[in-house]
Design a protein around this nucleic acid. Structure first.
Lengths: 245, 245
DNA sequence: GCTTTACCTTGATTTGCATCAAGTTTAGAA
DNA sequence: TTCTAAACTTGATGCAAATCAAGGTAAAGC
C-alpha cells in the first residue's frame, strides 16, 4: 500500500536540472531535492494506483510534491455525481495552502511517488522564504489557467471535442518529442492513458458509454489508434488538435 | 466611456477597514488605499457597463483592483462559442500576474470603478514586499477554489441546478444581512442581477432560452420572485440552496 | 408622446447525450 | 490453463436541453 523510499536509492529520471523531474511547462513549485534539503521531516513515499491521498472535508496535515505518476483531483456531490477538477503530474505541488481543511479529494490515478512535508513545517519555511512563496504562486496561477481552460471544455464543447481535448492534453504531456530533440522528426505520439474510461468521463462531464463511443469514432476516422485499451497512438497531433473545437 | 476620479473625492463605502470595500470572504489582495499609498502611478478610473478592460491575447500593461461593480472573465472559441470563466467583485484583483499576455477577456458587467497600477510598477513592488505577494497568493488560491467549484456545476449539474447555483452565488454575495447584524432576522434577500440572461447562459454553459425557462420554473414554484427583469427577491435562501444539487 | 431596439419569454420541434441492457475483452486469481 | 470480475464496447430507447420561430416588454432615443 504505502512504502517509504530510501532517499539515496531513488532513481528519479533526471531531465529538468532545477527539479529533477521529467516534465514540461514551468518548473514545479518545489523540487524533491529542495524539499529534502529544506527539512529533515521530508519523506519520499510510494503509493499504488487508486489510493486516496487527500479526502474532502478532512483536516490538512501535510503537503507533497509529485515525483512520478498522475494524481486526480475530484469533487463528489451528495448523490454520488463526481467531477474530476484537475489532473496533476510530476513535479506538481499537492495540497491547499493556508487552509485547515481540504475542499477536494486527491486520488492516485497511476502508481505514484511523492515527497511529503508536514503542513506546519512547510508553512514556516514559506514565511521566511519569499522565493519559495513566489514559486508556489506561479504554480497556483498555472493551475488557475488550466482550470479556466477546462471550464470552456466543460461548458461549451461537444462530446467528441471533449474527448479530443482530453487526448490532446495527455498526448502533449507525454509526448517524448518534447524532451528529445531527435524524436522531433517522428510524428507518431504513443502513450498510455493514466485514467480509466470512467475517470475520463468524470473529467469531461460525460458518461462512460459516451466516452467509449467517441473513442470508437476517433479510431474509425483514423485520428487515433487504440493498441490495447490504455495504449494510444496518435499519427498526427495536428489532426487531433483540429477536433478540439 | 472612461473617467478619472479625483482621489480625494471618491466615496467608497467603508465597511472593511483593511480594504475600504464592502465585501465578503477574505480580504482583497490589494486595497485601494494601499495601492494609492504604494505608488503615485496608481489611478482610479470609472467605466460604464460593457467595456472590455482586458482582451484575450493582448499584451498586459497594467493590473487593477475592483472598487465597485462586477467584472466578468470570459473565453471565446473561434466559432463564437463563449464561456464565462469567472465573476469578480470588489475588492478582487484583476490581471494575470507574471505573464506577458492575457489569456482571457475581462469585461465590465455593471458600472465599475477600478484602481489601476502599471504592470512593471506592481511587479517591482511585489519583488520587495513579501506580504503583498502573500496576499496575491491568497487571492489566487481563492479564485482557484471558485473555479474548481464551478467546474462541478458545469460538468455535473442540470439546467435548473445551474440556475439555482448562480442565483445562490449572487444572493450570498449581495445579501445585506451578511454585513448588517440587524437584518439577520429578515429572511428576504433582494438584489439586482449583475448579468444579462445571455451572460448567465454563457456562465452556466446553457442557452438563453433554457436560462429563461428555469427562471420561470423557479418563479412558478415560488422559490424566487422576479420584480423586474433584473430585480430578484428570494423569500428563503435555504430553499434555494436545496435546488443547487 | 411615439418609435426603435435590445432583451426576455414562450411554444414547437429536433438532437445529442444519458439511460437501460446486453455482450465482449482483458487482467488477475485459482 | 480456466475462471472470474472489472473494464470496456455496442445497440436500442428516452429525455433534457438545443434549436428554430414568434411574440412580448421595457428602456433609450427622437
Amino acid at each position: 500500500m504505502e512504502e517509504r523510499l530510501d532517499i539515496h536509492n531513488s532513481n528519479i529520471p533526471k531531465i529538468c536540472r532545477s527539479c529533477e523531474v521529467r516534465h514540461r511547462g514551468i518548473c514545479g513549485a518545489l523540487s524533491a531535492t529542495e524539499l529534502l534539503e529544506i527539512s529533515k521531516h521530508t519523506r519520499q513515499i510510494k503509493h499504488e494506483a487508486g489510493v486516496e491521498l487527500v479526502s474532502d472535508g478532512e483536516p490538512i496535515t501535510s503537503y507533497a510534491t509529485i515525483m512520478q505518476g498522475v494524481i486526480k483531483l475530484s469533487k463528489i456531490l451528495e448523490d454520488g455525481r463526481q467531477q474530476v477538477v484537475g489532473l496533476q503530474f510530476a513535479p506538481d505541488f499537492i495540497g491547499r495552502l493556508f487552509s485547515q481543511k481540504n475542499n477536494l479529494c486527491a486520488e492516485t490515478a497511476s502508481d505514484v511517488q511523492v515527497c511529503r512535508v508536514p503542513k506546519k513545517i512547510l508553512e514556516n519555511l514559506i514565511a521566511d522564504n519569499s522565493e519559495l512563496e513566489h514559486k508556489l504562486l506561479e504554480q497556483t496561477l498555472k493551475e488557475l489557467d488550466e482550470a479556466r481552460e477546462w471550464m470552456v471544455t466543460l461548458g461549451r464543447k461537444t462530446a467528441l471535442e471533449k474527448v479530443a481535448c482530453f487526448l490532446y492534453l495527455i498526448a502533449t504531456h507525454f509526448d517524448p518529442a518534447y524532451f528529445d530533440e531527435e524524436k522531433k522528426q517522428e510524428k507518431d505520439v504513443v502513450f498510455d492513458l493514466p485514467l480509466t474510461r470512467a475517470d475520463i468521463a468524470d473529467f469531461l462531464g460525460l458518461t462512460v458509454e459516451t466516452v467509449s463511443r467517441q473513442f470508437t469514432k476517433l479510431r474509425t476516422e483514423k485520428i487515433i489508434e487504440i493498441t490495447t485499451r490504455r495504449h494510444i497512438l496518435i499519427p498526427d497531433l495536428n489532426i487531433l488538435k483540429k477536433c478540439c473545437g
